[in-house]
Amino acid sequence: MDYFGDPNVWLPWTFAALMSFSILIYVVLDGFDLGVGLLMPLANDDEKDRLVASIGPFWDANETWLVLAIGLLLVAFPPAHGVILTALYLPVFVMLLGLILRGVSFEMRAKAPIAQKPMWNFAFFAGSLLASLSQGFMLGMYIMGLTWTLPHVAFAMITAVFLTVGYSFIGAAWLIWKTSDELQKHAIKWAKGGIWGLVLGIGAISMATPFVSKRIFERWFDFPQILYLSPFPIASGALVIFLWWSLARLPLKNDRLSWTPFTAAVGLFTLAYCGMAYSFYPYVVPEQITIYEAASAPESLFIILFGTLFVLPAIFGYTLLSYYIFRGKATELRYD
């Protein structure tokens, strides 16, 4: 019981788990609504309104997971927060610019004079693109250990493109679930066009990560780890095959299985993410600072944990309530 006895061990671990969990939720939730933004130029004018309507009630809350994730990094691992964010100064700036542009144009496209709507639609797309690309770029830089060398930047640019395509895929999968008729058919087409990005992205990260450090390589390929880690790639492969199969057959009668591409996409994101988390544990700054070295004082973490235990279930409760209230196919956004 020593492991659970020492708060200097289990508190940082718990907070690392909480933080990773928030990042995962953020990537999935904001992933689909950034993805919907990325698909804007492909949709016609009527469809654009429905694209936005499908994410309207959710996007504010989705972005709050980013604030929670970055907040947990900030409060639980202050030195790591400083190191990571000063290293990623410029991409963070670009992402914030994108998120600002996106959030503002979301409101403006509906409220500004109709003649300006194409401009705000474009801003909505451009903001989503900037945010997705910079997040992918940061992911690549993080994997490469946050040092700015030419090969690292080149790798980060590749992950930027892949994550962006991956987001557009999960966005399309969301639309398959939340829309119908012509738009749903378009979404299926978009999803088919995006799945390669997801596959290549996950592939590139899985290939590159073990070769960044010997430690990570051994974690994956030493015997017997390789045995009980094998479900990761196998399950991922099965999900990809399922997606290929179902996208070729959708839409089915009575809208059967329209929810499955999104669920499978969430599964893929989750598997890839867990694999990454396994690779980097126990480091919060790759190969430099572990979660145990970076953690705040136990008494401060206790205070946060105490609140979290009460509040997090409530957050889940009312988030589910919101998805339940806005269940079914997306309808026009109206204030009345």
């Binding site: 309207g56 009630p57 504010d60 809350a61 972005e63 806005f326």
Partner: peptide
């Protein structure tokens, strides 16, 4: 953020 969605739409 969550109840804003319900309040607005």
């Amino acid at each position: 953020a969550v109840f804003l969605g319900i309040m607005l739409f």
